[in-house]
Design a protein around this nucleic acid. Structure first.
Lengths: 205, 205
DNA sequence: ATCAGCTTGTGAAAGTGAGCACAAACACAA
DNA sequence: TTGTGTTTGTGCTCACTTTCACAAGCTGAT
């Protein structure tokens, strides 16, 4: 169980991958899987998987492996994915449109519960079953208890949107623009920068 | 200069961020910047920036700072972005459409030079100034000397597309699906998984 | 020319994470 | 019950990364 130890950030980053793997195995009807077999699928080392999981308790049975559906459920609880998590999507442009209908979110139990944009041309249009709302009405997400937001706006608008989101009670932001967002310490930001990743890739060619 | 030393992977990951910062500063007409000022903008520590840059040579002048446009140009050379890099986009769905017109790529000197899809409904349509081609004709990228590909297809098709790409001479793949791609050692893959990032974010709420 | 004030480049220390090796524990067969 | 084969959980070591501290070097004023 590795009690009283700080959980490494890298371990947390791998947890969603474990969840996906266990979910898929569960759908295939497999009851148990060993760290070795799982490591083969995820291209990790078996001891790393065992150590990662052991931070959160004793998941497995020696000589047998990890019970697929139990472990999946426990990881869901750890990541707070045992309840459906509502998220707001900011930006109904091309990237926002793609995000709104991305099947990966639904699989993890995320629910895009509101979409906002500032362009009058987009407000009122229907996207993935939701009407695009005016960004000025963003404070309505507080009543809906939305604590998560996906920011798919141009980098020039990113900071302004982030500030609005924080003021409306959002606690976590997935930022898809390359800008760094200034937010209070209590708010967590994860940024994804496609061009940066492609730049890294290029170096190794 | 830190000669004869291996360059850390984390340093490489930060180089595109430095390039963006130096490019922006250059556009604003600033001639020099100190590691301290840059660290303030990028939210890093000054010694880290100095050490990162020093792996590639002596960029700065003591007492003055780093010359903005020279440094930008040298980072472009390091990342092979001093020449326009052609990339193929696989998948003309919603995500592919967003990628095709993403302004961030152009800023770094990437050029989406061909788009492929397997759906007959999409083949022949025009997207971001290019006609969508049949994925069966993918080998044509070899003649165009495209060595980079962006994979924006559902995870079920990702491995098949990756294999086709490798056979057509691609050396680097930016994979936007959550699947792990099996490719020869000479091919480098960078994967981005939106749902995984959102899952990580949720843990810290 | 000299000096004060900055800023870079880098060796060394501290911090963080990954991988190995093995004891502990379980299943199943004899 | 005992033994064999398998697999987990984890202390320890090694590798990588970040941060610190300071010498070296530049600029501009006196």
């Amino acid at each position: 169980m590795l009690k009283f130890r700080k959980i490494p950030a890298e371990t947390i980053r791998r947890m969603p991958r474990y969840l996906r793997a266990f979910s898929l195995l569960g759908q295939e009807g497999q009851a148990y899987i060993s760290s070795q077999a799982l490591a083969g699928q995820l291209h990790l080392n078996p001891p790393q998987i065992r150590k990662d999981l052991s931070y959160f308790g004793d998941f497995g049975t020696r000589g047998v492996g990890y019970p697929v559906s139990d472990t999946a459920q426990r990881i869901r609880e750890i990541l707070k994915l045992d309840v459906t998590q509502k998220a707001a999507l900011i930006g109904a442009g091309r990237l926002g449109t793609a995000i709104a209908s991305y099947p990966g979110f639904a699989m993890f139990g995320f629910d895009i519960a509101a979409i906002f944009d500032k362009s009058p041309a987009k407000i009122g249009k229907k996207l993935a079953g939701l009407f695009v709302q005016d960004i000025g009405d963003i404070s309505s997400i507080a009543e809906k208890e939305i604590r998560l937001a996906i920011l798919a706006v141009p980098s020039e608008s990113a900071q302004a949107c982030a500030t609005l989101l924080v003021d409306s009670g959002v606690r976590g932001i997935l930022n898809l623009s390359p800008s760094w967002l200034k937010v209070p310490k209590r708010v967590k930001v994860v940024s994804i920068d496609l061009a940066m990743e492609l730049g890294t890739l290029l170096y190794y060619l």
